[in-house]
Design a protein around this nucleic acid. Structure first.
Lengths: 235, 235
DNA sequence: CCAAAAGTGTTCAACATACACCCATGA
DNA sequence: TCATGGGTGTATGTTGAACACTTTTGG
């Protein structure tokens, strides 16, 4: 049997991507979900997803779908896992490649496209999901904790300028634990990844906290360094 | 447009799995590769792979393909990444889900099925690969280092009974670095995951090293604990 | 008896943790 | 002036790294 026939004799499948989109509003971690348009599923919320097109790579499909929803480009995007259980989609067998996205809530609010109805949900008020989406979400949360405990990934969820107390709130939300501000800021500053700005945050606290920005160059270089942000040591 | 039509209007694709199979022979890390049967690719070696069947989950496909090659079941298997570049397979667009397998070389030698021609290759004598397989291999090696640095995964590559010097050789092969035997054995024994047996290894060294086996129950429980096996702290 | 690998203990430095006080400012 | 959150330093215990000698036994 020649090669082409070997290929042709195989079953083909639908391939989709689904995005687990995290945001942080200063208080708690959120997921961005969209309202499903399908008639008998009105009022159900779902992960944003889409089909992979004929000549499109997986990364391109994930970026495109995210762009369609948020109007944002150059988002932190990471492939997580592929789900392919024969029963996972009752309509027709579909493989879904889950992508993990971190975006800054402020950017999204500004760039909002109205093609989809979307809303941020706190992790503790998530709706019931279709298919295996709840598994995707819990694996994504686990991955976020794991990753954040080891890499300085948190910055992706914050605006360009941020304060140390904001960053601490974020890490507390990710780990679901309170952190000591003295130890936290020491550990953080020891990475030398932050550049202190002259400007202070106004309006939130009386004293005002200094803004910092990330040292992009060092951030790229040190990304694969273990940093061990985490109280305890287990995830 | 109804749901079924939405599904039907989408392009379908071939879905395959490819396995990156690691083994350890006491000296160096190895990959198990198979000879390709295709005429004009004789004498080329490739990762073991296979198509995903119509009613088969990804995990099932990966286990089946591994079983066909090695006759082994209950292998350590982990999904790594999905590759889907439109150009990756020149014959026809195929998505490939890469799986990472750890097996014990001795088990394989005993269980050898002859349906495929297969051979172990040291990491430093790997052949040139087709498609994006060399990327899969390097990402798998990276993942093995990462995982082994944090989880006691090394046991999967050794026989049931093993000595501490064997385990040290394995970790040295994984990290490509020499380790201090005093520190290594202290760190290892402090996990309490090993059970010392009465028996000694004979024939290799004059004094003979004690065999150990793993405490399966604790191993399962502690699997998600960070153990920080690694000289330095970066991968 | 000697060569080769196994096995074990101590010291020092680095890091994580716990903890308390002063500072700046808006109201 | 006072209440609120921001910012910093120190002492202690734990952990990782570096390092050398004794033990066992096959040849």
């Amino acid at each position: 049997m020649d090669i082409l026939k070997q290929y042709e004799s195989q079953t083909k499948f639908l391939v989709a991507i689904d995005s687990i989109i995290f945001g942080f509003d200063g208080e708690s971690l959120k997921l961005l979900l969209v309202k499903r348009g399908i008639e008998n599923e009105k009022d159900t919320w779902s992960l944003m997803g889409g089909w992979v097109q004929e000549k499109e790579s997986l990364e391109a499909a994930a970026s495109r779908v995210l762009y369609e929803l948020t109007n944002l480009k150059d988002i932190y995007l990471e492939q997580l896992h592929t789900y392919g259980d024969p029963q996972r989609d009752p309509v027709q067998r579909t493989f879904s490649v889950a992508y993990f996205a971190l975006i800054n809530v402020e950017d999204y609010t500004q760039a909002l496209s109205s093609a989809y109805e979307a809303r941020w949900f706190s992790l503790d008020e998530l709706p019931t999901f279709l298919f295996d989406h709840s598994m995707m979400v819990s694996q994504a949360i686990e991955h976020l904790r794991y990753k954040a405990s080891q890499h300085p990934i948190g910055f992706e969820l914050l605006p360009e300028k941020f304060t140390i107390p904001q960053l601490q709130k974020l890490y507390e939300a990710i780990f679901g634990a309170e952190l000591d501000k003295r130890n936290f800021s020491r550990k953080l500053l020891s990475t030398k990844l932050l550049i202190k700005l002259d400007e202070k945050q106004r309006g939130f606290s009386k004293k005002g906290a200094y803004f910092y920005k990330i040292d992009e160059e060092k951030y790229q270089k040190q990304f694969n360094t273990f940093l061990n942000f985490l109280p305890g040591g287990s995830v």
